[in-house]
Amino acid sequence: MSPFPVDRRTLLGAGALAFAVPLTGAAAQFRGDGVFWSPNTSSYPTAVDLKANYQFFTSDEAAFVEAAALRMIPADPTGPSALEAGVPLFLDRQLAGDYGKGTRLYMRGPFGKGTDTQGYQAKWPPAGFHRAAIKAIGDHLGQGGGAPFHKRAEADQDAFLKDLSGGKVDLGSDVDGKAYFKLLLQNVMEGYFSDPIYGGNRNLAAWKMIGFSGARYDQRPYVLAYNKPYPLPPVGIGGRPAWTAKG
C-alpha cells in the first residue's frame, strides 16, 4: 500500500492557490516505494451534450458566429460545412468552460497593444474577447443602419472577413480586429478537426473528408504501406457513430 494518501487531483493548480487554500494535510512526498500509482484517478474528457442549447452565446452572438464560421468553411459536396460539423456548438461549450475563462492564461495587467510578434494581448480571456469583438463588429456594421453580418450577402460577408483579417476594420481602441479574426479562425479549425467528443467534427465527417485516421494507437501495419489508401475508417476517443445503436 502506498503511504501517500494524497488525492492528486485536488492538488492540480495547488501552486496558484497556495496562499489562500490549504489543500490537504498530507505531504506529496514519495520515498523508496517505487513508481506510485493511484488507480481510478485517470481523467477522461467529458463528452459535451449535443442536444442542449447554447450555454455561452446570446442569440445575436450565435447568429454572427454561425454565419462567420459558415463563410470560413462553407457548404459544398466536398465535405461538411462548419455548421454541419457543429462548430458553433463546439465553440459555445469551449467558451463556457475553462478555455473561455482563460484559466491557464496569464491575465494580469497592465494591458498594452503589443507588436504582432508579442501574441495574444487582449485584456479579456477568449470568452470575453469573443463577446467584446462580436459586439464591436455589430456596432461597426450597424453604423448608419447597416445590416448585421448574418443578414448580409455571402460576397459581402467574405469581403468583411477579408478586411478584418487584413487589419482594415477599425473596431475601436479596445478590440484588435486582426487579432480577433485569428482567434476566430483558429477556434473554427479546432471545432472542425478536433475529436467529436467536444461537439464539433460531427460524425467524424471532417476527418473522413481529408482521410485522417483519428484516435488510433497502433499504426505499425501502415508504415511501409507505400502509396496505399489507409484501410480503416476514422475513430474518435469515444468510438465511432457506426458503433452506436440508432434510436
Binding site: G13, G15, Y198
Partner: peptide, 21 residues
C-alpha cells in the same frame, strides 16, 4: 484510451506550464 486528443493536449496545453501561475 484518450492520449490521442489534439485539442486537449496541444491546443489546451494540458501537460504544459500554467501561465496564470
Amino acid at each position: 484510451a484518450y492520449a490521442q486528443d489534439e485539442l486537449r493536449y496541444y491546443w489546451r496545453h494540458e501537460l504544459f506550464q500554467r501561465l496564470n501561475h
